[in-house]
Design a protein around this nucleic acid. Structure first.
Lengths: 168, 168
DNA sequence: GGTTGTGTGTAATGCTATAACATAATCTAT
DNA sequence: ATAGATTATGTTATAGCATTACACACAACC
């Protein structure tokens, strides 16, 4: 019944399971399955697309099934939500991080290529620090931040004139 | 029929209208009305709440009515969308900026107070610059960025223990 | 053995946004 | 003046994203 994922994904899942274990968090079969679907996807994936895939082996799955799993994974820092896409991506850093006993939100930045749809995840501490500093100057203390940019990745910037008209 | 807004809002609307005029953009009565609703709101406002308010004087209004107006206002830099809230806020900077002939997206950052719901808009160039630099180092060129943080504003951080339990 | 907490199932609903087509008004080139 | 293009809006329906509310199962604990 356990879903089959790529070798890389299975490896990350094992790491995630170990991390959760040490934290006292319960990475159940369902949660592991959803995390596998997210990690295995080539790009950020919507909740309902994950649901469709989940249903291939878990007949009764409904929206709350996948949203509850995602909530858990978000709390554990194993996935991120990309606000601009209403979609979810695996957090490799989260899956390989040393456990710290508490859930901890990785300060990540996402670069979304408008051309190919790929998402680059950065963990640039300087960016977070500068934002935190600016907020502090405004008397504001940050608990979590969303930093996302849309633009062109290096590959797509190099191609033709920007838009995908290689077929012309 | 023209809606009545606060003196401050009407003043901003007049500025916005002047700016649009010089840009060759058409701030119609409908668009002006929606912008007024956004500017008059105390906090970020969802499209359907704007729709409800719009309907008080414009009976036939439907979702596309307000979404199309918002699209125009976003293009003109007169409002911002707060991704985390799926809500819209007026951009005072946009309503008072010198017209530049082209629509131009203000690089803004939002600080969302989880306590009172207020949103502080920053226009910190340094934050944008650091993000742009980090992206560039990753070979990525940014067209637009979303920078939003959730936390506590200075007022709410000072009150009791953080959560609103003043009633206890 | 009753209670509590956690994880999941199930049905329904709510909220956010867009598609697709119709209508009206204005402009403009011939 | 009129056909065609453009812009703005009206209208109906639907798509897409997320949550509420309640039920059930099971393990841990006293």
């Amino acid at each position: 019944m356990t879903a089959e994922f790529s070798r890389r994904t299975e490896s990350l899942l094992d790491r995630a399971e170990a991390i959760c274990g040490r934290r006292g968090a319960n990475l159940t079969e369902l949660r592991r399955h959803v995390l596998g679907l997210v990690l295995d996807a080539a790009s950020p994936t919507g909740a309902y697309e994950l649901l469709d895939r989940l249903r291939q082996t878990r007949r009764g799955a409904a929206p709350p099934t996948v949203y509850r799993a995602l909530d858990f994974l978000l709390e554990q820092g194993l996935v991120h939500r990309v606000e601009r896409l209403s979609a979810f991506v695996g957090c490799v850093a989260g899956c390989t991080a040393d456990p710290d006993g508490e859930s901890h939100t990785h300060a990540a930045q996402f670069l979304i290529c408008g051309e190919c749809g790929r998402v680059i995840e950065m963990q640039d501490h300087h960016v977070s620090a500068v934002l935190a500093r600016a907020a502090k100057d405004a008397g504001f203390s940050i608990l979590s931040a969303t930093i996302e940019a849309e633009g062109l990745c290096s590959t797509c910037r190099g191609s033709t004139t920007g838009r995908a008209d290689a077929s012309i």
